[in-house]
Amino acid sequence: MNVPQVLPRAIARPLRPRIPRIGSTVFKHLVLILVGAVVAYPFYFMVTSSLKEFFEATSTPPTLFPTSLHFENYVDAWSRQPWGRFFANTFFIAGASVAGEIVTAVLAAYAFAQMNFRGKNVLFALFLATYMMPGEATLIPNFVMMSKAPPGVNPFFPIPRLNLYDTYGAQILPFLASAFSVFLLRQQFLAIPKELRDAAVIDGAGHLRFLWSVVLPISVPALVTVAILSFYASWNSFQWPFIVTSSEAVRPVQVGLNAFRAEAGSQYHLLMAAASFVVAPIILLYLVGQRFLVQGVARTGIRG
């Protein structure tokens, strides 16, 4: 949040009030560098190992730098599994989930923030309840719903059987709405000044028009935050796709990496190459969209 321009500087609270200095600067940097080294080492090990030759990657003790660089490991690892297919699947699943989630969340959040209707409080409590419901509660029933009804079992009652096992649908449909995104956007839409709505009413604009031409354009940062958090969750998800898919045709990258673990065995140089290209897109997204991701996490406290 920016400090409003009209405030004199003396009144404006400094953006980062600092704690009084402790210890020497050198000592503090030493602490931070040590922690940073421990945190970053696995990434370093992943990338350097991915460039080693087989015998070097499985040598005792491990070498700190590769003695020679083997970029062909990436080609080799890439050819062992249909990675292109896995990446395309993941991009499609994540893209569809993000798009759907944004649409449903924008509409619901707008209703909660800017409209008056009967039962608003009850419905809001319902959304809050779904937000608190952990995934463990719904894992098994959702799996049963996605599977095909066995012969002689009513496919509609008591449990509807969607017959979507091993499809994109099973990996997308459950993520097309998120109570969390509704809350995040509602918070944003509540902050829109009432004068803007009044002006729009005088100009004869309905809710949809107001939402499209006024609310959305000034809410772009919040929308980007929702999109990034949602994409990130979709890209990294493992347990659900692992359970509801079996064929390579619809398999996402995380499940593919798990399958490759078994195939690669002790060929750690190839496994590390695969891990590198699986994490590369999400780390790239993090470096580009860090501001939004950090803001989103800080504002909402989602832990993933």
């Binding site: 969340a105 209703a111 719904t138 097309l176």
Partner: peptide
């Protein structure tokens, strides 16, 4: 009516994949 129309998609998906499954569990 408009408000419920706006809420419908979110309620439909949350209902089918979050609320009903909790009962089914």
């Amino acid at each position: 009516a408009q408000a419920y129309l706006f809420l419908l998609p979110a309620i439909a998906f949350l209902g089918l994949f979050k609320i009903l499954p909790a009962v089914y569990a």
